[in-house]
């Protein structure tokens, strides 16, 4: 039906889900976590993360961890809203 963008959507939503899950457990979503969760290679992960950042779904946050600087990703309001859209699919399927 719409396989052309289903694969990309699946990755996008998995990235959002990963960040949300980390956030709910008071953790930080690092690139490695996202790569592992969405099963992505480094280059692909970077491209998706950049696209999501450009679209305003996520934001890159720099923080210090001891002497090191770590970059983690946080979800924006828009990202949360889009993830909620995805959750609506579940509602749409009700009653079938």
């Amino acid at each position: 039906m719409n396989n052309s963008y289903r694969n990309s959507n699946s990755i996008i939503l998995k990235i959002l889900e990963c960040i949300l899950k980390k956030k709910s457990s008071r953790g930080r979503a690092l690139k490695t976590h996202i790569m592992q969760y969405a099963n992505l290679k480094t280059t692909m992960a970077e491209k998706y993360l950049n696209s999501l950042e450009n679209a305003g779904y996520i934001k890159r946050v720099e923080d210090t961890w001891g002497k090191r600087t770590v970059i983690y990703y946080d979800i924006t309001e828009k990202g949360i809203e889009r993830y909620r859209w995805f959750s609506k699919i579940d509602t749409e399927l009700e009653g079938i």
Binding site: Y5, S8, F86
Partner: peptide, 15 residues
């Protein structure tokens, strides 16, 4: 819903 998300994020970028 899928199309909207795809258009917002991927647009003309080729991944």
């Amino acid at each position: 819903i899928e199309k909207k998300i795809y258009e917002e994020v991927i647009k003309d970028e080729e991944i």
